[in-house]
Design a protein around this nucleic acid. Structure first.
Lengths: 141, 141
DNA sequence: CTAGGTGCAAAGGGTTTGCTACAAC
DNA sequence: GTTGTAGCAAACCCTTTGCACCTAG
């Protein structure tokens, strides 16, 4: 897998250490494909490194979230799920007043999508999505 | 407040008892206005009836949810919030294959709205919302 | 009367935190 | 050598559950 160089670079630039645990967690998220729970990630890594603690997984996930390397999807009921962040994929919020557009990470709509699929079996088209509304500046001004 | 008759009727029809606790919880939700947590509801009722247990609040909320009298909104991070269900207000899912439309409770988009407001200060226009996609039947058929 | 509901207390599950030893740099 | 991290265990928070008593119908 290429692209891991980015992760390493991002970690180092931010002054974080590249530990085996972080590499393994990152691999597990990437290889797992979809949206995985912290527990699933832990279960996967433990196969090859039995000492990894679930608390460490949570700390790493927080870190990766903060660095925008992974995205958290949390529907409330069960545990949160994590996926590799795809920086290019996003939707838009369009202000009806000033017409400016703001990026909106796919994860926001991913939560909605997951619920529609799970609860209704309805697979929404969310490819080119834009939400109209009023931005913070125009609302306060 | 009129409309409480509906609630009483719904409870009785379903074979449930009308207890003071249920009335008080329902009142607290209605009067609280927005989306309240179980703890906030409990805090409110306890002012006039100090014996109400938080577990009872949760049990009543589950019941009201099951009867579609209140709606649960759960963003994952903090505790779930509850609001009176407004049966008339809903959005639509439109199947791109069969063109049928399916009702979508406002609570689904309410979660999205809350996140956009909280995290970006962006107030989305979600009045007449329709989501395109493919329904369960057309996806399996 | 009698099923269903409440209060109390304790358990549960996911997530976070304090601390000491350890490893990346 | 420093300082951030991992492992461990315990705490945390919200929510659920078991059980004996009580109350709405």
């Amino acid at each position: 897998m290429a692209g891991h160089g980015n992760v390493v670079a991002t970690l180092k630039e931010a002054g974080y250490r590249l530990t085996p645990q972080r590499v393994m967690v990152l691999q597990a998220i990437a290889e797992g494909g979809g949206h995985q729970t912290a527990e699933a990630i832990h279960r996967e890594v433990v196969k090859t490194y039995p000492y990894l603690d679930i608390a460490t997984v949570y700390r790493i996930l927080q870190l990766l979230k903060r660095l925008h390397l992974v995205t958290e999807i949390d529907l409330g009921g069960d545990s949160a799920r994590y996926e590799v962040a795809e920086p290019n994929k996003h939707h838009h919020m369009v202000c009806r007043v000033c017409s400016r557009t703001f990026d909106l990470s796919t994860s926001y709509l991913e939560e909605l999508r997951l619920r529609l699929v799970n609860e209704f079996g309805f697979e929404p088209d969310l490819e080119h999505f834009a939400i109209g509304g009023q931005c913070a500046e125009c609302a306060s001004g």
